[in-house]
């Protein structure tokens, strides 16, 4: 790689990290409860320091963001959270209790760590599904489904997770993943 290309790669790396640094700075200012030059400067210093000391591999953001799809993702998620919380609460309190559960395998479409991680997080946040294991190479999630009894319950869960992934890809996924979505015919 030429020197020019190397410099461009470094610049791109810095640009990709900027949103995350921004979040750290915003968090710092929120914790102080004040937006001022002092909190901004100390925030930037700390953000750089923290990412240096607690080094983790760079998160590969897709660089694409669709506000409408993102809003939709948030609202659908909130709806699912409320509905599923009520459902699990009802199961916990019902005299019948839980008879059975299941471990379900879900093959995701995306190969991006970012999308797979967020899908796992969103799936885990909704009560009734718990991510037990992640196969990163094949993008496969293994979920524990609370109260699953019939084979249809497993299919429902699989469909729900794939829908979540689809919404995520539409909101923050890379162009390649969006194309793959269309190629799958779900668009």
């Amino acid at each position: 790689m030429s020197e020019e290309g190397e410099r461009r790669a470094i610049l791109r790396g810095v640009l990709h990290q900027l949103p995350l640094l921004g979040v750290l700075v915003a968090l710092w200012m929120l914790l102080w409860g004040s937006v001022s030059v002092l909190t901004l400067l100390t925030g930037i210093l700390l953000a750089i320091g923290v990412t240096r000391v607690f080094y983790l591999p760079a998160v590969a953001l897709s660089g694409r963001f669709h506000p409408v799809a993102f809003t939709r993702l948030l609202f659908v998620f909130l709806g699912q959270l409320v509905a599923a919380s009520a459902e699990v609460s009802a199961k916990a309190l019902s005299p019948r209790g839980i008879r059975s559960s299941a471990v379900v395998e879900v093959s995701l479409l995306s190969r991006s760590d970012f999308v797979v991680t967020l899908t796992a997080v969103l799936t885990s946040l909704v009560p009734g599904s718990l991510v037990l294991e992640v196969d990163r190479e094949r993008s496969v999630l293994f979920l524990h489904v609370l109260g699953a009894e019939r084979p249809e319950d497993l299919e429902d869960m699989r469909r729900r997770v794939l829908k979540t992934e689809e919404r995520l890809i539409r909101a923050v996924g890379s162009n390649r993943d969006v194309e793959r979505l269309q190629g799958e015919g779900v668009a």
Binding site: L81, V82, A84, S85, V88, S89, A90, K91, A92, L93, G97, I98, S101, L125, V126, P127, G128, L130, L132, H144, L146
Partner: peptide, 29 residues
């Protein structure tokens, strides 16, 4: 109410994996 349900689930669900659902989820809402 959600906390009560979480507590009830923690006691009543049959195994560790099921109890994790009760112990971690309703509390988020």
């Amino acid at each position: 109410l959600l906390s009560v349900a979480a507590g009830a689930g923690l006691v009543r669900f049959p195994d560790a994996l099921s109890r994790m659902h009760a112990g971690t989820k309703p509390q988020i809402l």
